[in-house]
Design a protein around this nucleic acid. Sequence first.
DNA 1: ACCTGAACACCGTTCAAGT
DNA 2: ACCTGAACACCGTTCAAGT
Lengths: 192, 192
Amino acid sequence: MALTRDHVVSTAVELLRRYGLADLSMRRLARELDVQPGAIYWHVASKQELLVEVAAALLAEVPGVREEVPQSEALAALAELATAVRAALAPVPDAADVVGMAYAAERASVTALRELRGLVGRAGVPADSCDAVTDLLVHHILGSVALEQNERLAQAGDAGGAGRDGAEVARSFAVGLEVIVRGLVAAKVSSS
Amino acid sequence: MALTRDHVVSTAVELLRRYGLADLSMRRLARELDVQPGAIYWHVASKQELLVEVAAALLAEVPGVREEVPQSEALAALAELATAVRAALAPVPDAADVVGMAYAAERASVTALRELRGLVGRAGVPADSCDAVTDLLVHHILGSVALEQNERLAQAGDAGGAGRDGAEVARSFAVGLEVIVRGLVAAKVSSS
DNA sequence: ACCTGAACACCGTTCAAGT
DNA sequence: ACCTGAACACCGTTCAAGT
């Protein structure tokens, strides 16, 4: 069958899942597709553009928020969504780098993160601070994902496993998330 | 003069400052030092090790916190230090990636970030949450630095400058930092 | 002890030419 | 329209051999 952009992207996602970013080269991807390296460039302008698509594909699997969340539940929904995004990215090697690049390149490019911003607004954060708070949340998520992947590597290196595991990093993420939520509540109280 | 490890590292820092991470290759560094690529490997085990040293050098320039901060001022000192670290890294291209890698590889390896952790403890955060809160702060700093550098690139691409500039990102950083600080205060009040 | 020379196994990207 | 073949200008790392 002929090569399609979708096939190129989904194969790239598989390669990332299995072998990580270091092995996701245009040439390796071409080999996987039984094609010459140059062929990929007919479907995709550059590796950068490919990685943006890969990031979108990874985040597309996060269960979407239900529409019409009342303000009273916006903060809880926000914490839930942030946790779901973290859970979706955690098992994919180097997912933090890939999504971080896409987010830096174009903040609106990724659906799940746009929804996050929507919830921040509905939680009562002033309009001129929505971007700032969303950035804080996104960096907390991606930072936590990057750390967890590093723990996995360190643990694989160690013999056995006295190292902190994924559950430990997940708890750490929850602590940070709660600090942020409390901070938002405090700001709301003090300004009303 | 003979090549030394310090000379290798400081030249790498200069290269990073001037041309960014993409141009900080072992071969380019060797050319800059008038030496064959292999020579560098006598002074440094790998590029990864070199980058950890580079990260340490960047953070060594952050003005240290004064010793013996009373608890009442710990939160303020923490915010001040976080802002100083951000300011030191912001002008260096790709500093967020370099420091992020070093931090992930070994959280204690970087002095300024160790001091940050100390202040978190003195601010009254329970011992078993110090790492979590420190991670949150570090990721907020590095995320903000990465975003600012991207704005700079986007702005250089635009003709003129309707884009948000560095000051805008700095304000965004301050908003996020305040949310975190408020969150820490709220947690303290609610637990005492 | 410190460095050169040369190799090994790779990269991303472009582009004439083929079908 | 879609892909091959081949090139261009690079990478990080290793290691015998030189001084």
